[in-house]
C-alpha cells in the first residue's frame, strides 16, 4: 500500500500578496485587508456577492480555498474534500466588533450578521457551501503554529478512508495582521507532504 501523501496545490495570502503554487499571482499596495480582499475578488472574477457579507477571517479563508479549488475541476453538486483549518486567534477580531454593538446600554443593537461570525468554523461553512463539500471538517486553535498535529490528523482522515483529499489551512486574522497558508493533500502530486515542505509554504 502506498503510504505517501503529497501537496497537490498550495496557496499563501499575506502582506497583500497571493502566491499560488509558488508563483505570485496577485499583489496590491492598497490600505487594509478589506480593500485588498475586494481587489483580489475582482481580479480573480470570483462573482459571489455573499463574499461581501463575510467577516475578514471568512474572506481570507474563502479567497485561499477558492483559488485552490478552482484549479481542481470539482463536481458541481457533491465533493469529498475534508476541511481542516486552524489558527491562533479564533474569531476574536470579530468577537471584539460584536462586543462593541452591546457595549452601550443606551444604544443597544446587537447585530445577528456580526454574531454569526463569532464562531471560527463559519469560514468552513462558507467554503463548503460554495464548493459543495459534503465532507469531514474541523476548526482547531493553537497558541503556536502546529504543523505536526495538523499533518498527522489530515493524513489519518485519508488513511482511515474518512475522505479522499484534505484542504489544510492555517488562517489567522487579528487586528489587521493576517496570514492564510492553505494546501490540498492527496495521494497524488509531486511535492511530498513533509514538515519541511509545510514550513516552507508557511514561511514563503
Amino acid at each position: 500500500m502506498n503510504n505517501n501523501f503529497y501537496i497537490k496545490s498550495s496557496v499563501s495570502i499575506k502582506k497583500h500578496k497571493i502566491v499560488l503554487d509558488e508563483t505570485e499571482v496577485f499583489s496590491s499596495a492598497t490600505d487594509g485587508f478589506t480593500a485588498f480582499s475586494k481587489e483580489a475578488y475582482k481580479n480573480f472574477e470570483i462573482n459571489y456577492p455573499k463574499f461581501f457579507k463575510m467577516d475578514n477571517l471568512s474572506k481570507l479563508a474563502f479567497l485561499g480555498a477558492d483559488l485552490l479549488l478552482k484549479k481542481q475541476g470539482l463536481n458541481a453538486t457533491d465533493n469529498d474534500i475534508a476541511l481542516i483549518l486552524a489558527n491562533k486567534s479564533s474569531s476574536l477580531d470579530t468577537d471584539a466588533t460584536y462586543q462593541e454593538t452591546i457595549a452601550d446600554k443606551e444604544n443597544y443593537f446587537p447585530s445577528p450578521a456580526v454574531f454569526v461570525y463569532t464562531l471560527p468554523n463559519i469560514c468552513i461553512g462558507e467554503i463548503s457551501i460554495k464548493h459543495k463539500l459534503y465532507a469531514e471538517n474541523s476548526f482547531f486553535i493553537f497558541e503556536d503554529f502546529n504543523p505536526k498535529f495538523l499533518k498527522e490528523y489530515s493524513e489519518f482522515l485519508i488513511q482511515s478512508k474518512k475522505t479522499t483529499q484534505v484542504l489544510w489551512g492555517w488562517v489567522e486574522y487579528f487586528k489587521k495582521d493576517y496570514q492564510a497558508t492553505m494546501y490540498l493533500i492527496s495521494k497524488e502530486g509531486k511535492q511530498v507532504h513533509s514538515l519541511e515542505n509545510i514550513t516552507k509554504i508557511y514561511t514563503q
Binding site: K53, F109, P112, A113
Partner: peptide
C-alpha cells in the same frame, strides 16, 4: 435581491434602530 434569513434578522434590527 436574493436576501436570506440572516438579512431578514438584520432588517428587524434596522427597523428597531
Amino acid at each position: 435581491l436574493g436576501l436570506d434569513s440572516i438579512d431578514a434578522l438584520e432588517l428587524i434590527v434596522l427597523m428597531d434602530k
